[in-house]
């Protein structure tokens, strides 16, 4: 199950696509749920799912970063500039993910309440670290989410460019080892 240097391994591929589905799903859910009316059936459920999936994705992402740092990586293609930009974009995506998990956590735990994950376990809260924490963290969470979705779109377009224009293996090797 180890990643080979020629391509990505199944672990990386699975985590990548799970994360992709989760990120797009969380964005859509989050965007939709903030405008729910009080009497909507989803008023309590949607945020519960959003938070639960978000925390689980945070755990998966931490594992992913560890996995990424300890395995050999397939060689990047493209010009040196492209490779640098790609490195930068990926770093920013990971950074945005971490900041999104953190800001989301800080909204819900601003009063010391924990976050219940699918009625499975409760992640404890640390309470208020800064004044108006829930408002500031909320604004940060919203804007970072837009930036992340923008970058994810760019990331997808770049993959398609590799596949259809450069006709290289960049997309293929994220689909099968």
């Amino acid at each position: 199950m180890n990643d080979k240097a020629r391509s990505w391994g199944w672990t990386t591929i699975t985590i990548h696509w799970l994360s992709a589905i989760a990120v797009v799903g969380l964005f859509g859910l989050g965007w939709w749920m903030v405008d729910l009316t009080y009497y909507s059936d989803w008023y309590k459920t949607a945020p519960h799912i959003h938070k639960s999936v978000g925390i689980l994705l945070a755990a998966l992402t931490l594992f992913r970063l560890f996995w990424r740092a300890t395995r050999p990586r397939p060689e990047a293609s493209g010009s040196q500039l492209e490779q640098r930009l790609s490195m930068l974009a990926h770093t920013v995506i990971y950074l945005l993910l971490i900041l999104l998990f953190t800001s989301g956590y800080l909204i819900s735990t601003a009063d010391g309440r924990g976050i219940e994950i699918f009625n499975w376990f409760t992640l404890p809260g640390f309470g208020s670290l800064i004044e108006n924490q829930e408002d500031i963290a909320g604004t940060v969470h919203e804007w970072l989410a837009y930036v992340l979705i923008g970058l994810a779109l760019l990331h997808a377009l770049a993959a398609l460019k590799h596949h259809f224009i450069d006709k290289d293996k960049t997309l293929i090797r994220m689909l099968k080892p």
Partner: peptide, 16 residues
């Protein structure tokens, strides 16, 4: 008005 406090940060955020 920003000092509204209903003992629940998520609700207070919504009220603001």
């Amino acid at each position: 008005p920003a000092s509204i406090d209903s003992n629940h940060a998520e609700r207070d955020k919504h009220l603001r």
